[in-house]
Nucleic acid binder design. Sequence first.
DNA 1: AACACCTCATAACCACAGGTTATATATAAC
DNA 2: GTTATATATAACCTGTGGTTATGAGGTGTT
Lengths: 298, 298
Amino acid sequence: MKTNLELYKVFYYVVKNRSITGASNELMVSQPAVTKSIKVLERDLNTTLFNRNKTGVTLTNAGELLYNKIKKSMDLIISAEEDITSLNNMEQGTINIGAGNTIMQRYLMPYIREFHELYPNINVIVHTVVTPELIKRAQVGLVDIVFTHLPNDVPSNFKIIKLKKLHDILVVNKDSKYKDKTISKNDLKELPLVLLPFDASNRKNFNHFCSTNNIVINPLMEIGNDLIIEDCALNGLGVGLVVREYVKNNLDNKNLFELKTSFNLKEKDLVYLIDSNRMNNTIVNNFIKLLEHDLEVI
Amino acid sequence: MKTNLELYKVFYYVVKNRSITGASNELMVSQPAVTKSIKVLERDLNTTLFNRNKTGVTLTNAGELLYNKIKKSMDLIISAEEDITSLNNMEQGTINIGAGNTIMQRYLMPYIREFHELYPNINVIVHTVVTPELIKRAQVGLVDIVFTHLPNDVPSNFKIIKLKKLHDILVVNKDSKYKDKTISKNDLKELPLVLLPFDASNRKNFNHFCSTNNIVINPLMEIGNDLIIEDCALNGLGVGLVVREYVKNNLDNKNLFELKTSFNLKEKDLVYLIDSNRMNNTIVNNFIKLLEHDLEVI
DNA sequence: AACACCTCATAACCACAGGTTATATATAAC
DNA sequence: GTTATATATAACCTGTGGTTATGAGGTGTT
């Protein structure tokens, strides 16, 4: 471009006010500053833009020609700035949240509802696919924030923030023959386990335990939904492998009972991941605030 | 506006190059200067516009949102500047020329033809109405340049530039009984004069002479076109009051003869007028150059 | 006609925004 | 490992874009 764009801003306001003095007031600078700016613009464009009268200024033909497009241009800039303001004010935009079924249903649901109530104009898109696919999408920017369980493979460019400690437990209903038994490692092979599919992030911890202890389990069922596993246990259909924190209600109500074990399943983490190259998204930050607000309470 | 518009220029080039270094090259400034500008823009807009990678930068959602309109805005500015360039290069635009019939036919025609050949893309509009109306139009900007004869009433805000000295003369054809007579003031009353209408600018000089000398003429004809007056004289229809310079050809060819007079009609000026508040119009300046080029030759 | 009150232009001066160079850090490419 | 390349940071300097004071030229009111 031929000249400093600030000069077009000044030009725009001089035309708007049909006066150099008027523009100087609106721009909150001195009148000679505006006079100088217009002179520089005229020099740079090698043309005369204004007829100077003693009552103000009027556009020359060249000025008119320039103003046609400069007006549109300045209006676009003003509008673009308003867009950013409204984005900052959470008045528009989209958040792409990645989370598997389990985390979605057991953890995220209330936050998403709260977020939507707080910011009704933000479009929330939830990607419910397996964690590796979520990470792929996050790396190309399709997903802003990924929720998953650790341990898990996470590329180094992701920042990992822990939300909650979770505990894998075995549960049955009050009529189960296992209800008061203490389960040993060896017992696991015989148990009619109801579990998530092998590659579910929520099963990684258990898989790891089995393989390091050379235990080959013989599941009764593998189901892609944590709620259904809980339901199975409630209905006496085998022994459910679930997360204690997720089935707290039914444990408290004595609808489900946690089996004692002679071994110790490591605790695991509920976390979210953010591509460290894509931090500082206002909308995502506001979503995270909701989660963290909750953390403080705990 | 929230920030310095130069920053949007920098932003535009960074997006275009997908790189801060690339933008710095295109803008011909140092890389740290661009880094700084983007940081300031991000601070002013209170948002993060780019994800910094080691291979360049990519837009955040907010950056994308901003770029939608900033691109259009910058393209408009570039286009506006091209408009001015093409105006400076006489590739577009309009000139409004004001001149009565006589000046148009006797003087301006060849210049307008030459102007059109030189600048075929400039739209030429000729206003052929009486001088007072031309001056009105010039004062509201409808007419860029007014051609007329002096003496005449010209408002003080017009700059007057003299083009040619003109001389009012009386002419007849070779068969006229007046051909070899020397005309006195008193003879004027009796002559079968063929003249322009009373209010024509080209007649002002003669009117003035008559009134200061208390001569009441008795015209044979008043005609609004100078060429027809010449024709009348050629055909022996009275004594034509014409401008010597305008009928030069027929005088040289001995088709017309200038009557000797015992009095002296003042010489008068062919001039153009420009509203001093509306000078410096590229197109008008180029038109004037044609006229002045001719003046030097004379 | 004299007056106050506008306009824009000019001059002399000053501060800091926006540039500079040099260097650090991290990653990609080979 | 080594090299090349990306952005970030720091310290410094210069010229743009601001300032105040003043002037010249018009309008409009009494």
